[in-house]
Design a protein around this nucleic acid. Structure first.
Lengths: 255, 255
DNA sequence: CGCAAGATTGAATAACCTCAACAGCTGTGG
DNA sequence: CCACAGCTGTTGAGGTTATTCAATCTTGCG
């Protein structure tokens, strides 16, 4: 689910050399100070023709990577951490289009300007590529190009799953779907070993992602816990006790 | 809005020679008879390297072009008519991901099997390309490839607008947004001349696209009409009387 | 004309939201 | 160390929106 989930496993390797860079452009940021970019040492590796293309950036929890409306000059790939992809309505209503996790891309589809802001949920390191550099690279490398195409296809497919969720699913179905997707995302290769789910984001983020209010998210989680379908060791940890029941719930099989 | 809107204007020219073909594969269709494919004469034109790639197919109102779950062997481009892109939940709830209009593509993002069914709302002619043929073509033609990439980007962007609509907008805001998008779609180049909006789909389709029930769609339309914001000469025709008010409504500026 | 499908309207209901109070945790400063 | 402030999360009560169920009307078509 969400944009990021489908992209996560993309086998695209875009290694990057470490390169000090400031994101702060000439224009002032609106709601918060320009991100403080720090050099992230130790994460660089040179292993392909893309090695001069990207720079590695570190963002602290809460910092913005890009702002909705900014000129879409770069494409990002998450190396570590977790981020949210946010859009605001004029009256302040907030919507989260997706969460970004390691391996996910952002900015591929933004042609003119970014349609969303991206904010770090936890401290995160990102690889940043110039759009022009990446495009030129893709023009020359067919294999890479096909992989990027595959990434976009899976992203589109994931977004359409989310459309169904927002358009037709009940609150309980949304939470069940979300928890299963988060579990799947953590350990995609062992479909039984993903009982423990870590939620880096807060309730407000979950609510804005699922098209619900914070209180509804709390209530549904409390209900699932009370029914012994999940456990909640702490606010950001979910343990899936009855996966099959959760799967039934996510598809609307029963109540 | 919707997948298709963003794709509509894609400048990709994929002319096709007419070619008789049956869509009915070896597998039986589930809910309705296999589409009756007829040769559509008169629409063929040879004007590029793609001329041997596609075949032109005609679908009657109500016929299915592809079924959710079918092997995704082809990509389609709408030549004329209108179609709906449908997904069904196990319990019968229905969701429409987008409407397809002339110029729109379908199947680009479906890698393994189609995630949606496509059904003709009105009689429609489609150009059909084999996935393998199209991919090979794209590998060889950089300009075409960039255009297809642009198509996918706009599609993704449109779907994300729709996520916001489904996740955060009220029924009135959804209808206002929808009507404006349909108007824009009809005459994209004359942003004042698009008062008259034709809705080829029925209320049920609109409801499933906007994440509402039929009755809600009716009530909101009746309310907009009563407030002299729109007129409804007949069920499938909307006249936009106060575009600015509709724009305010679509963004949630007022009531 | 007569039927069937779609559209509309009304009344009652349910799901989710809003508002409000409170609990739990974290970090700060005396 | 403790008190307190601020933030996030949780729970309760009541309100609103959109749904559900039902009846009626309209339209297209044989």
């Amino acid at each position: 689910m969400g944009i990021a989930a489908a992209i996560r496993e993309a086998a695209i390797e875009l290694p990057s050399r470490v390169q000090s860079a400031g994101l702060a452009g000439p224009g002032a940021r609106r709601r918060q100070a320009a991100a403080v970019i720090e050099e992230a040492a130790g994460t660089a590796r040179v292993s392909g023709a893309l090695d001069r293309l990207g720079s590695t950036l570190l963002f602290r929890k809460g910092q913005s990577v890009v702002q909705q409306g900014d000129l879409a000059s770069h494409v990002f790939k998450v190396a570590s951490g977790a981020l949210r992809v946010v859009r605001l309505m004029p009256d302040g209503r907030r919507h989260i289009a997706s969460f970004l996790m390691p391996g996910d891309f952002f900015g591929l589809a933004d042609l003119e300007s970014y349609g969303h802001s991206v904010e770090a949920i936890t401290d995160s390191t990102l690889l940043r590529y110039t759009r022009s550099g990446l495009e030129g690279f893709l023009d020359r490398d067919m294999q890479m190009r096909r992989q990027v195409f595959g990434v976009m296809c899976r992203e589109l497919s994931a977004v359409q799953d989310h459309l169904l969720l927002l358009g037709r699913k009940t609150a309980t179905e949304r939470l069940a779907t979300f928890l299963l997707a988060m579990a799947e995302r953590r350990s995609p290769h062992r479909p039984g070993e993903d009982r423990q789910v870590e939620l880096p984001m807060n309730r407000s983020d979950v609510a804005d992602y699922l098209g619900l209010r914070i209180e509804t998210v709390c209530r549904v989680l409390a209900d699932l816990k009370q029914r012994r379908i999940i456990d909640m060791p702490d606010v950001h940890s979910i343990v899936i006790l009855r996966r099959d029941t959760l799967e039934d719930l996510s598809a609307g099989d029963s109540d």
